[in-house]
């Protein structure tokens, strides 16, 4: 009796949905509409405007802006340091997440909270803190002001939480059984990590890395104070964009923005490809 009763609604529901594949119900249609509108207003229109401004300035001014020695150096520095910081975060972030999930030690709960502070702090405040700690009057005796290390340090500081926070929940949900199974099959801890755990973490690590890289190439507030914005040396792309805008050259600013956009898209796509590779391996 009960099987008949439970089966009927299931069948009806399926029939209601299946003949109209592609067509959406009122609620999901509304949902999709709202989502697309919001997405367009916030993302698509501004991005198109940036590209349009670049195109409006003409091909020559685009090339001129990018072949400018100072701009090229700024873009190179930004991308290099962001890649470096992302690589460090992939390793350190995963390690910190591992320690937070798998180890029990005094102060773990406190560390768990502190991880978010670089992210929660207003970036200019982070810049001030870094300048006070690693600037000319450093109480630690470390003065990296006006050097490339300043850019790296500032980026590392603000992007620390990304990989930690994406990997942590996945690690928490990971079944311990699979690791024990690998161990009973003779796998060492390292092999188990490489072939069983890492493939499960890869999507989360890639997501964290993408966030970390994106934040890195767009960072401004935390590094302006410590890096000193020296042309050809410690000036980053975002500072360069601001300079162009202040000098009344929006087309050149848009050209730099477009390049950064292209770099961001490329890196995010590459990370996704890499992540799929690792997740499938084993």
């Amino acid at each position: 009796m009960s099987t008949v009763v439970t089966r009927v609604p299931g069948r009806v529901a399926r029939r209601r949905r299946s003949p109209r594949t592609g067509a959406l119900g009122v609620t999901s249609g509304l949902g999709l509409g709202v989502a697309m509108l919001w997405f367009s207003l916030l993302v698509l229109i501004p991005l198109t405007a940036v590209v349009a401004t670049t195109v409006g300035g003409g091909w020559d001014s685009f090339v001129a802006a990018l072949t400018n020695e100072q701009t090229a150096a700024a873009v190179r520095l930004t991308v290099e340091q962001s890649l470096l910081v992302t690589a460090v975060n992939v390793v350190m972030g995963t390690a910190i997440a591992w320690v937070l999930v798998r180890d029990r030690f005094w102060g773990r709960a406190a560390l768990d909270v502190v991880i978010d502070i670089p992210f929660a702090l207003p970036t200019i405040v982070a810049g001030l803190v870094l300048l006070a700690l690693y600037g000319p009057g450093s109480p630690l005796g470390v003065d990296v002001a006006n050097t490339g290390s300043a850019v790296f340090l500032a980026l590392a500081f603000v992007t620390l939480p990304f990989v930690v926070r994406t990997v942590q929940p996945v690690l928490e949900e990971l079944e311990h059984d699979a690791e024990e199974a690998a161990a009973s099959l003779g796998a060492t801890g390292l092999t188990t990590f490489r072939r069983i755990i890492l493939p499960s973490l890869a999507p989360a690590i890639a997501a964290g890395a993408a966030l970390s890289f994106a934040r890195g190439i767009s960072e401004y507030g935390s590094l302006v104070l410590l890096s000193g914005n020296l042309p050809l040396k410690t000036e980053v792309a975002s500072v360069r964009v601001l300079t162009y805008v202040e000098n009344g050259d929006p087309a050149a600013a848009a050209a730099v923005a477009t390049i950064m956009l292209a770099v961001a898209v490329t890196v995010i796509v590459l990370l996704d490809v890499l992540q799929r590779r690792v997740a499938r391996r084993g």
Partner: peptide, 17 residues
């Protein structure tokens, strides 16, 4: 690792990937 024991778990413990 060194006991050469085969172990089967209640919830399969499959390597999902």
């Amino acid at each position: 690792q060194k006991r050469n024991v085969g172990f089967v778990f209640q919830h399969y413990a499959a390597f999902k990937h």
